[in-house]
Lab assay of single mutants.
Amino acid sequence: GSVVKEKKEKALIEVRPYVEYYNELKALVSKISSSVNDLEEAIVVLREEEKKASEPFKTDIRILLDFLES
């Protein structure tokens, strides 16, 4: 629970300088966080969101995924 939350919060802070739609990304992460149990599940849902998103938000999600998977 809290470790996953920390990882996601740290990821958002780390990617902030590189993303165009930070507030939207943060809102998406919050929405996903409330419906998943762990980081792996969150990553799966983020990948689905990435497929549906259009640029440049798609790239923002990709940047976040790269950080979460590192």
Rank of each mutant, 00 (worst) to 15 (best):
G1A: 12
S2I: 07
S2N: 11
S2A: 09
S2K: 06
V3H: 10
V4G: 09
V4R: 04
K5M: 13
K5A: 12
K5I: 11
E6R: 07
K7L: 15
K7Y: 14
K7F: 15
K8M: 15
E9Y: 13
K10H: 10
K10A: 12
A11I: 09
L12G: 01
I13K: 12
I13Q: 13
I13C: 13
V15N: 02
V15L: 09
R16F: 14
P17M: 05
P17T: 03
P17F: 06
Y18P: 07
E20D: 03
Y21R: 08
Y21V: 02
Y22P: 02
Y22H: 02
Y22L: 03
Y22N: 03
Y22F: 12
E24K: 14
E24I: 10
E24T: 08
L25F: 02
K26I: 12
K26W: 14
L28T: 01
V29M: 12
S30Y: 15
S30I: 12
S30V: 09
K31E: 09
K31Q: 08
K31G: 05
I32Y: 05
I32Q: 02
I32E: 02
I32M: 04
S33P: 05
S33L: 14
S33G: 05
S34R: 08
S34H: 07
S34C: 05
S35I: 12
S35W: 15
V36P: 03
V36L: 05
N37D: 09
D38C: 07
D38Q: 05
D38G: 07
L39P: 06
L39A: 05
E40G: 09
E40S: 09
E41I: 04
I43Y: 08
I43C: 07
I43S: 02
V44I: 09
V44D: 08
V44K: 09
V44E: 09
V45E: 11
V45Q: 12
L46A: 01
L46K: 00
R47T: 06
R47Y: 10
R47M: 07
R47L: 06
E48T: 11
E48Y: 13
E48M: 14
E49G: 02
E49Y: 11
E50K: 10
E50I: 07
K51G: 10
K51D: 10
K52M: 10
K52D: 05
A53W: 06
A53K: 03
S54Y: 08
E55D: 07
E55N: 08
F57P: 00
F57G: 01
K58W: 01
K58N: 03
T59C: 12
T59I: 06
T59A: 12
T59F: 14
D60I: 14
D60G: 08
I61F: 02
I61H: 00
I61G: 00
R62P: 00
R62Q: 07
R62W: 07
I63D: 01
I63R: 03
L64R: 00
L65F: 02
F67K: 06
F67A: 12
E69G: 12
E69F: 12
E69T: 11
S70E: 10
